[in-house]
Simulated scan of single mutants.
Amino acid sequence: MQALRISNATRILAEEQDEYHALAILDEEIGGVNHMTSVWEPTPAELQQLIDGGAVRLTILGTAHPPIMLTTQAPHPCE
Results as ranks from 00 to 15, higher is better:
residue 34 N to T: 02
residue 64 A to Y: 01
residue 72 T to N: 10
residue 20 Y to A: 13
residue 33 V to K: 06
residue 20 Y to P: 05
residue 33 V to L: 05
residue 69 M to V: 09
residue 77 P to F: 11
residue 2 Q to L: 07
residue 53 G to C: 11
residue 76 H to C: 01
residue 69 M to K: 11
residue 31 G to C: 01
residue 32 G to P: 07
residue 49 Q to L: 14
residue 73 Q to R: 15
residue 16 E to M: 08
residue 62 G to T: 02
residue 68 I to G: 02
residue 76 H to K: 09
residue 2 Q to N: 15
residue 76 H to S: 06
residue 33 V to M: 02
residue 4 L to D: 06
residue 4 L to P: 01
residue 54 G to A: 13
residue 47 L to H: 04
residue 62 G to S: 00
residue 4 L to M: 12
residue 55 A to P: 00
residue 14 A to V: 04
residue 6 I to Y: 06
residue 26 L to N: 06
residue 15 E to R: 06
residue 42 P to H: 14
residue 2 Q to I: 07
residue 32 G to F: 05
residue 48 Q to M: 12
residue 13 L to W: 06
residue 19 E to W: 12
residue 1 M to R: 03
residue 15 E to F: 00
residue 41 E to K: 15
residue 29 E to C: 04
residue 42 P to Q: 13
residue 66 P to R: 07
residue 47 L to K: 10
residue 7 S to L: 10
residue 28 E to R: 11
residue 58 L to A: 09
residue 46 E to H: 12
residue 55 A to Y: 08
residue 69 M to P: 00
residue 69 M to Y: 04
residue 1 M to N: 02
residue 31 G to H: 07
residue 35 H to E: 04
residue 71 T to L: 09
residue 31 G to L: 02
residue 8 N to P: 00
residue 6 I to F: 04
residue 47 L to C: 03
residue 28 E to W: 00
residue 42 P to E: 13
residue 22 A to E: 14
residue 41 E to G: 04
residue 57 R to P: 01
residue 32 G to Y: 06
residue 27 D to C: 01
residue 19 E to T: 13
residue 18 D to K: 15
residue 11 R to V: 03
residue 23 L to T: 06
residue 39 V to I: 05
residue 4 L to R: 09
residue 33 V to N: 02
residue 79 E to P: 14
residue 4 L to G: 01
